[in-house]
Structure formats: structure tokens, C-alpha cells
């Protein structure tokens, strides 16, 4: 127990870095995922094909592969970064975007087809129909699965700890090495700080869901 109190500065630093990784990757993933979903339902066959291929490949390979790709393969292709955090953010957002895309797509499918027909019949273009009518309704229905994905993202960010990024899990490893006699408490502390992010996320989801539900 003492070890947690003693190491609070490290825990706090790790917590902030994990939060940073999750928030930045989460925002990028939401944007990229929504664009992928839009591509998936677009009238352009090439866009649909690309989106489908991306989602299938990324969703069905382990996150570690994405990290290896971002941290080791990309630099060899000439994409170099000053910090490994950038690689971690690329890997996490690319991976999470695939799941977001699938969630948004299912939301788009849940919007009655008449909504799009009505929007087209008053002269809206495909982009307007999607951004003004379909996506606002789709995103509301997919908030619960979306929050699940974001919770998974917070936890997945721990993989970055294995790629030289000092975040919550990375600090946890360090502390466990330094305090070999109190590993259990060290890990309990790590778990506590993850819960500090994920539990409120679930709570927010519940509140938002109640607030934005659309009556039909």
C-alpha cells in the first residue's frame, strides 16, 4: 500500500500520459472512423472498396502488429518521429478507427431510408444528406458501442508501454521492478488509475445516451 503513496508522482505522470494518448488517439480515431464509414456508404465504388479493405485488415489483426508497423516499419519507409508517442498515437488511432467505422456504419444502417430520401428530395447533395441528416442520427444511436470502443482504446494504450512509451503501464513495469516485494500493490495502483478514466467514461455514456435518444 505504501508503495502507491510513495510513487504517486510517477502514477500521476503515467496517468496523464495515458489520458493524453487516449484522448488524442480517440479524437483522431473518431474523425478517421467516421470518414471511413462515410466512404463505406458513398456512391463511389473505389471508396467503398478501400474502406472495406481497411476495416477488414486492421480490425482482424492484433494491435501489437499495428504498433510494430508504426514504430518500426514506418521509420524504415522514411517516416521518422522524435518521440515514440507519435508512433503510439498513429497505431492506436489507426487501429481504433476501424472499430469506430464499423460502429458508425451500423448506426447509418439503423437510420430509416426515408430520412435520406426526404433529404434528397429537397435538393440536398450526398455530402449534405450524410452530414446533416444521416450522421447526426446515426452517431446518437451508436454512442453506447462507441464508448465501449473508447474504453478498449484506453486499455489498449497500455501496449505503448511495451514500445518505450512511458505511460501508466510503462511506469507500472518500472515500479514493479523497483519494488519486487510489492508487485501486487503496484499493479493494483495501475488498475486504479485506469479505472479512474474508464469508469467515468461509462458513466458519461449512460448520461449522454439518455439525453440524445431520438424518438421516432
Amino acid at each position: 500500500m505504501d508503495v502507491i503513496i510513495e510513487s504517486l508522482p510517477q502514477y500521476w505522470d503515467g496517468f496523464l500520459r495515458t489520458l493524453f494518448l487516449a484522448v488524442v488517439s480517440g479524437i483522431i480515431a473518431l474523425v478517421v472512423g467516421t470518414l471511413l464509414a462515410a466512404a463505406r456508404v458513398s456512391p463511389v465504388a473505389a471508396l467503398r472498396g478501400f474502406s472495406m479493405a481497411y476495416v477488414e485488415v486492421v480490425r482482424n489483426t492484433p494491435l501489437t502488429i499495428a504498433f510494430f508497423f508504426a514504430a518500426i516499419v514506418l521509420p524504415r519507409l522514411g517516416v521518422t518521429f522524435q518521440q515514440f508517442e507519435i508512433a503510439a498515437i498513429i497505431a492506436l488511432s489507426a487501429y481504433t478507427a476501424a472499430f469506430i467505422a464499423e460502429a458508425v456504419r451500423s448506426g447509418v444502417n439503423s437510420v430509416p431510408v426515408g430520412q435520406a430520401e426526404a433529404a434528397r428530395s429537397i435538393g440536398m447533395t450526398f455530402g449534405q444528406v450524410l452530414s446533416l441528416i444521416i450522421l447526426p442520427q446515426a452517431l446518437r444511436t451508436v454512442i453506447p458501442p462507441m464508448i465501449n470502443i473508447l474504453i478498449a482504446l484506453v486499455k489498449n494504450s497500455s501496449v505503448a508501454g511495451a514500445f518505450f512509451v512511458l505511460e501508466l503501464f510503462g511506469y507500472g513495469k518500472q515500479l514493479a521492478n523497483d519494488h519486487g516485494d510489492a508487485v501486487m500493490w503496484v499493479l493494483a495502483g495501475v488498475a486504479f488509475f485506469y479505472l479512474l478514466i474508464t469508469v467515468p467514461l461509462g458513466y458519461i455514456a449512460h448520461q449522454v445516451e439518455r439525453k440524445v435518444a431520438i424518438a421516432r
Binding site: P112, E117, T125
Partner: peptide, 25 residues
């Protein structure tokens, strides 16, 4: 064909559906 021009033309043609299709949000 489907696209901006068609959208312009549709703006001149009002449509009322069996199931109303008001924008729910």
C-alpha cells in the same frame, strides 16, 4: 445523373411521402 445537378433539379420538385419522413432529430 446523380450529383449536384440532380440535387438542383430535385429542389424544384417537392415530394410528400406515405411515411412523412420528417427529420427525426
Amino acid at each position: 445523373e446523380e450529383g449536384k445537378e440532380l440535387a438542383h433539379l430535385r429542389a424544384d420538385v417537392g415530394m410528400v411521402f406515405q411515411s412523412f419522413n420528417l427529420f427525426a432529430h
